[in-house]
Design a protein around this nucleic acid. Structure first.
Lengths: 103, 103
DNA sequence: AAGACACATCAACTTTTTTTGATGTGTTAA
DNA sequence: TTAACACATCAAAAAAAGTTGATGTGTCTT
């Protein structure tokens, strides 16, 4: 029985956070919309997802904290985009186009 | 604003389940050990992970339900292995060797 | 300056997940 | 056949995540 292991606690917690952010169908749907629609403002996301404003905000923040999406504030509106580079680090090619956009 | 989206509810729930199973550092550590050590029995996992027996059982079941690991019962012992084929469908190559074993 | 809009944040609540310790089941050894 | 072992399962408790409705902040319009 080998006892040595190669991953450190910090890495585990970091991946835990990333996968936790992906572990909700609302958030996966958000990523899907951002991946297929590109830059989208909260108001449009709210319509597409049929989520209340505060609920949507909550889920966007989680994806943001995981660094899987980015915001640009333009005056009154906030536009969100998928951070495909970060998503690609974690997700398989098979999930390309579904949850992030390809090269 | 485009309104069409391409993913169905069932797919979303399926991915939610998969990612939920990956969203815990104990379970990621289990996968890491299985990926690096290969087939391992619960008793050895319990020592490596320093998890109580029932807690470990709980987490193994979640990974099993997500189809990310498999069991073989040999008499008294249960041996678990990573289901690398399934993991590879979801996880990037970058995570190969960390959470599943390569080709 | 006042109102309307787009969004974030907060506190209270609900739901889900995780932990814990006890009990149950099958297998092996004495 | 009894005891010990390896593990799963269960019910209760604790902790974490998600929801809701209200409030706050910044921007634009008038």
């Amino acid at each position: 029985m080998k006892t040595q292991v190669y991953i450190c606690d910090n890495d585990l917690l970091n991946y835990q956070k990333k996968f936790k952010s992906l572990s909700d169908s609302n958030r996966l749907y958000i990523l899907h919309i951002l991946a297929t629609n590109g830059k989208t403002c909260v108001c449009d996301l709210s319509e597409l997802l049929k989520l209340s404003q505060s609920k949507l905000s909550y889920h966007l923040k989680i994806l943001l904290d995981a660094n899987f999406i980015t915001v640009e504030k333009e005056g009154k509106w906030n536009y969100y985009s998928a951070n495909s580079n970060e998503l690609k680090k974690v997700l398989s090619n098979e999930l390309c186009c579904l949850f992030y956009s390809g090269e």
